[in-house]
């Protein structure tokens, strides 16, 4: 599928227009869910880590440090992308599946449009452009959620902020972005593949979209581990 995509576009404008539409679809459509989820993930992590450590000898300001690093290294990229696999991945698969079943893809082919390039490439590009900023937003909101929850739990805000600034390693942000690009690519390609090759009827579109979610989730955690091993 990826090989078929490489060809001269018929009209660059049309491809750009489709890419923008997809960016809007993926980005704006997912902003709210990513926002809410990151906020609560940060909050939960704070409450639970505070609880987990309450019996041990960690100083309380470490909470801010732990939240910041957990969000950046693991929770923001992985959790967001698992959620995106559920939302964007299933969406891409069912959109392409519907186009396949209702012969819209055949219609493009008969017109002489390279349907793989026109339908799949803009989705992958849009995902690569829009997912990393979503992850960055997610990291910020997660830390903010952690801060509010920690204050609520009885930890002084200054303490938390001290932890936030403690031993910041910019390399962690690099890890986060690498994960973001890899996951975005995985979700988009897996989901497009599942949707593009649907055969049958409406029920099969549902199955393809479930497969898209399942396979991209598995690949996301698999690559999460591989990246963690290679980069840390």
């Amino acid at each position: 599928m990826l090989k078929q995509m490489i060809s001269v576009p018929e009209s660059a404008y049309m491809y750009w227009k489709e890419t923008v539409r997809q960016m809007n679809h993926i980005g704006v459509g997912s902003l709210i869910i990513i926002g809410i989820i990151s906020f609560f993930t940060g909050a939960v992590t704070a409450v639970q880590f505070a609880y987990q450590l309450s019996g041990s000898y960690f100083p309380p300001y470490l909470l801010g440090f732990v939240i910041r690093d957990s969000m950046i290294i693991e929770l923001a990229p992985t959790l967001s992308c698992l959620v995106l696999a559920g939302k964007v991945g299933s969406n891409m698969a069912s959109e392409l599946g519907t186009m396949r079943i209702s012969e819209q893809i055949d219609a493009l082919e008969v017109m002489g449009v390279n349907s793989t390039a026109y339908l799949v490439a803009p989705k992958i590009f849009a995902a690569l452009i829009i997912v990393p900023p979503l992850i960055i937003i997610s990291a910020f909101l997660g830390v903010y959620g952690g801060l509010l929850a920690a204050v609520n739990y009885g930890i002084a805000q200054e303490m938390f902020e001290k932890g936030l600034l403690y031993m910041f390693d910019p390399f962690n942000v690099v890890i986060m972005l690498v994960k973001a690009y890899v996951f975005a690519f995985l979700i988009a390609t897996v989901s497009c593949y599942q949707g593009f090759y649907v055969k049958g009827g409406a029920l099969d579109i549902g199955k393809a979209s479930t497969r898209a979610v399942v396979f991209s989730s598995i690949l996301v955690v698999l690559f999460d581990y591989l990246i963690a091993v290679v980069m840390t």
């Binding site: 539409r21 519907t98 186009m99 209702s102 012969e103 819209q104 219609a107 008969v110 017109m111």
Partner: peptide, 13 residues
């Protein structure tokens, strides 16, 4: 070539 499909195959978006 023009082609009219059974279900029309209009682009829903």
């Amino acid at each position: 070539i023009g082609m009219l499909f059974q279900g029309s195959a209009l682009f829903d978006s």
